[in-house]
Amino acid sequence: MIEDEIRELLDKISAQMRRNYNQLLHDVNLHVGQDNLLCKLWTKDGLTQVQLCEHLKCEPPTVTNMVKALEQKGLVYRQRDEKDGRVSRVYLTPEGRNLEGPVYDRWRKQQEKLLAGFAPEERLLLRRFMKQMEKNLF
C-alpha cells in the first residue's frame, strides 16, 4: 500500500537527516535536540524547565539532562526565579548566545541538502503537505 511506503520513506528520511544533522552539530560540540533547546532560549532567554518541556514536547527528565549537559559545556546556567524561589530559570551564557549563527548555518545547510532539486513551488507544496500531516497527527 502507498501509505506504508510513505511511512517507510518518512522513517528513512528522518533517520538519515538525524545522522547527517548530528554530524554537523558535532562540529560545534552539540547533539541533536540540544540545538532546539538553545533555539528556544535564543528566542526567549530565561525560560523555566517546565516551559522548555512544553516548547520542546519533551518529558521533564529529558530536558533536565539536556540542561545539565549544556551547563557542563558552559552554554547555559540555571538561576532561581526572583519572585518564586521554587522555580529555576535557564539562561544562555555568552558562549551559548554565540552559537546561534553557527547552528542556524547548519540548519540551512541541512535543509538545502534535503530540498536540493526541488523548485520553489514544489517546496511550498511539500511544506503544505507536511503541515497537513502534522495536523492530522496532533
Results as ranks from 00 to 15, higher is better:
Leu126Tyr: 02
Val28Ala: 03
Pro120Met: 09
Phe118Asn: 00
Trp107Glu: 09
Val76Lys: 03
Leu56Val: 01
Met1Gly: 12
His31Phe: 06
Gly96Ile: 05
Asp11Gln: 15
Leu52Val: 04
Asp11Tyr: 09
Leu92Val: 05
Asn98Tyr: 10
Arg106Phe: 00
His31Gly: 05
Gln110Glu: 11
Gly74Gln: 10
Asp81Cys: 05
Asn98Gly: 15
Ile13Tyr: 02
Asp35Met: 03
Arg19Ala: 13
Leu47Trp: 03
Val103Gly: 00
His31Ser: 08
Arg106Asn: 10
Asp27Leu: 13
Asn36Trp: 08
Arg128Gly: 09
Arg89Trp: 14
Tyr21Asn: 02
Asp27Gln: 11
Val87Asn: 07
Phe118Gln: 03
Lys83Ala: 11
Leu47Asn: 02
Phe118Pro: 10
Ala116Cys: 06
Pro60Trp: 00
Glu3His: 14
Leu52Pro: 04
Lys113Gln: 07
Lys113Glu: 05
Lys68Val: 14
Pro61Gly: 09
Met66Ala: 07
Val103His: 03
Leu10Ala: 10
Tyr21Leu: 00
Leu25Glu: 02
Lys113Ala: 10
Thr64Arg: 08
Lys44Asp: 07
Thr64Asn: 14
Ile6Pro: 01
Glu112Val: 05
Trp107Asn: 07
Gln110Ser: 14
Arg108His: 09
Ala116Glu: 15
Leu99Ser: 03
Gly46Ile: 03
Arg108Asp: 12
Thr43His: 13
Asn36Phe: 08
Leu114Ala: 00
Gly101Leu: 07
Pro102Glu: 00
Cys53Lys: 00
Met17Cys: 02
Leu99Ile: 11
Thr43Ile: 13
Leu125Met: 15
Ala69Cys: 14
Thr64Phe: 07
Lys73Leu: 14
Ala119Gln: 14
Glu122Asp: 15
Cys53Ala: 01
Glu82Gly: 14
Leu24Asp: 10
Gln79Trp: 05
Asp11Ile: 04
Pro102Met: 11
Asn98Met: 06
Asn22Lys: 12
